[in-house]
Design a protein around this nucleic acid. Structure first.
Lengths: 220, 220
DNA sequence: TAGATTGTTAATCGATTAACAATC
DNA sequence: TAGATTGTTAATCGATTAACAATC
């Protein structure tokens, strides 16, 4: 094994980079300094990347900088919000009222990103009908109805892996356009449905890889 | 905005691809068929990618296929487990006993990936001392002690964004080597500490982008 | 053997970076 | 103005793909 993954590519996608910029600039703004500008080099240094790439990224989303000054924080933030659709409402339901499902359904941060959880489902009769946060836990029978009534576009799946495919079929049938899959499994869905796999083990694997690499670098 | 992100790069990293292969093959194996082989084309089709890339990836982690037959499921799975370190124990603590922290601390899947949560912390006196799952909630005062006693290498941060930096400083001080950051903020840490940012909004942004793109493609 | 599938080489493509002119 | 910083062009680098020979 040793060196097999010596140079794994851990580069981040444009989406990830934009969000990283967003948090950094947002914080900087909040931290009180009335200095509402930020240069590409400042951003690049923090995230450990090339400043030209930062400028390219910002140009790509239509932000123009100001020579000698840098970028206006507010302009960058609002362009990123625009592009990522943080300000458009996107209706979603959560399927699976376990630990993760509960955490997601009651997470207060989602509205900031435009996600509106308007239903929590589980097929455990011990759970259905009870409140979790501000949500009544619905039984899967109400799925089609809730989806239609609320124009739900996204289903967040936090069910055990062995039921994930079956549940995916049901939400697709109910008319959902996208699935945010937190189950440790792959899913087969029709062409017209989008899936994003949120596999917790990816993050863990990356972190564990970083630790190993650091240790190795130190030993050299 | 319209077309700005027309062709965003959503390619996945090697780590993500490996995990995707893993789930797919694992499932296939479980689904009973005694057919314990899988071809690069089968994998590629499912994930919607090029078969040569699959073979390159597998070659990179040291798996050799068998002409006319494909790859032996068991060999691929074990190579991926090896490379990703699923079988090595990695000790971690969770800081923040809110919804997400609780979900992570009680998540039964982590041992499968080699993560061993051996402590849950919060500085809310309402929570410290009580049990959550099989964990006593420790106060932050015990941090250094627990880290040292258990040789904890990773801290999972699920605290509110405004405390994240402060907590990061504390866990670094306590000797942690890596931070798995679930707070919506960037962190500054010393050179010798690794950070993986697990920003929920990245997944959401990707999904929302996929929905938009699909809609646009349909309209064309 | 014939044929399916791998492994590898070479070509392509796109993303990143370096260099530097443009701007205020 | 001088100087800092952007924006853009051209060069580089690496990842992906196509083509095909090797294998069983």
């Amino acid at each position: 094994m040793e060196n097999i993954l010596a140079n794994v590519d851990l580069r981040h996608s444009l989406l990830e980079r934009l969000i990283h910029y967003y948090y950094f600039i947002d914080e900087r703004k909040k931290s009180g300094n009335t200095e509402v500008t930020v240069t590409s080099t400042q951003i690049a240094d923090l995230i450990n990347m090339n400043d030209t790439l930062v400028r390219k990224d910002l140009a790509a989303i239509g932000v123009r900088g100001h020579p000698r000054v840098g970028f206006k924080a507010e302009e960058v933030l609002s362009a990123i919000r625009d592009v990522l659709g943080f300000d458009e409402k996107l209706r979603a339901i959560v399927i699976g009222a376990g630990g993760l499902g509960t955490a997601l359904a009651t997470y207060h941060g989602f509205p900031d990103y435009g996600l509106d959880i308007c239903g929590l489902f589980d097929n455990d009769p011990q759970k259905t009908g009870w409140m979790i946060g501000k949500h009544i836990v619905f039984s899967m029978n109400s799925l089609a109805h809730v989806v239609e009534q609320n124009e739900v576009r996204i289903a967040v799946l936090t069910v055990p892996a062995e039921y994930a495919q079956e549940v995916a079929d049901q939400v697709v049938e109910a008319g959902v356009e996208g699935i945010w899959n937190f189950a440790s499994t792959s899913l087969e869905v029709p062409e017209h449905v989008s899936v994003r796999h949120e596999h917790i083990s990816v993050g863990l694997a990356e972190l564990s890889y970083l630790l190993k690499r650091k240790k190795r670098d130190d030993t050299e």
